[in-house]
Design a protein around this nucleic acid. Structure first.
Length: 208
DNA sequence: AACGCTATCAACCGCTCTCGC
DNA sequence: AGCGAGAGCGGTTGATAGCGT
């Protein structure tokens, strides 16, 4: 069957509570990851993608809803500076938060381009945010472009700067006030895996 | 009360990545 | 090595709630 035909037959839009229940039962039966099977067996007429998204963002156990704490906001800002728009990586460091939630939060509360549209409303938030550093400003990282035209030198300088900042960050980060999750522990230390994930991406790898 | 505007966030789309053959 | 299918990711859209006039 052609993709288009399948698409038109699929149900779209907001999920009903009874659909959530069916999906939850289906994931418990068939396991997380087999989204094509779940889509088919559930009889929900939802695509595997849609099922996956709903599960990941709302039905998964240990999902944390509600306002971001100041610690979480600070962590998002710092991680975004380090990693850019890698929402899944950032969300991976925030127990119970999803990439979609982090992305939405960034776009509506923290992204300067968008938030300037609603400056009035967010002035208080920005003021509150600025209290996190002594200067009232988030520290700027140098970029490869701003440091030097020599990419090898520039990359080393940028990495050193990051590492220095992260060491300081790890020491200054307060203990989390959220419960630890067995499969997703809060790790204040930006471990080797995270740094490896960031550094092995295309934009950095060619220079190393 | 009615209308228009804005902010928020759930969900979709299209692309990339990964894995099995 | 190359291909296809499925999973995952990030960008974007659209519905709607809330607020101001």
């Amino acid at each position: 069957m052609k993709d288009k035909e399948v698409k038109t037959r699929m149900k779209r839009g907001f999920w009903k509570p009874e659909e959530d229940l069916i999906l939850k039962n289906c994931v418990e039966t068939h396991g997380e990851g087999n989204w094509a099977t779940i889509s088919e067996k559930s009889g929900l007429m939802r695509s595997g993608k849609s099922c996956r998204l709903r599960w990941k963002n709302y039905l998964r156990p240990n999902i944390k809803r509600g306002m971001m704490s100041e610690d979480e906001k600070d962590l998002i800002i710092r991680l975004h500076k380090l990693l850019g728009n890698r929402w899944s990586l950032i969300a991976g460091r925030l127990p119970g938060r999803t990439d979609n939630e982090v992305k939405n939060f960034w776009n509506t509360h923290l992204n300067n381009k968008r938030s300037c549209r609603s400056k009035k409303k967010h002035v208080k938030f920005e003021e509150a945010n600025n209290t996190h550093s002594p200067q009232g400003k988030i520290q700027e990282y140098p970029t490869v472009e701003t440091v030097s035209n020599n990419k090898e030198v520039a990359t080393k300088t940028v990495l050193d700067s990051w590492i220095e900042e992260m060491q300081d960050f790890n020491c200054s980060l307060p203990s989390p006030n959220v419960p630890f999750l067995e499969d997703e522990p809060f790790i204040p230390i930006l471990d080797d895996i995270l740094l490896l994930e960031a550094f092995t991406r295309n934009e950095i790898q060619p220079f190393l």
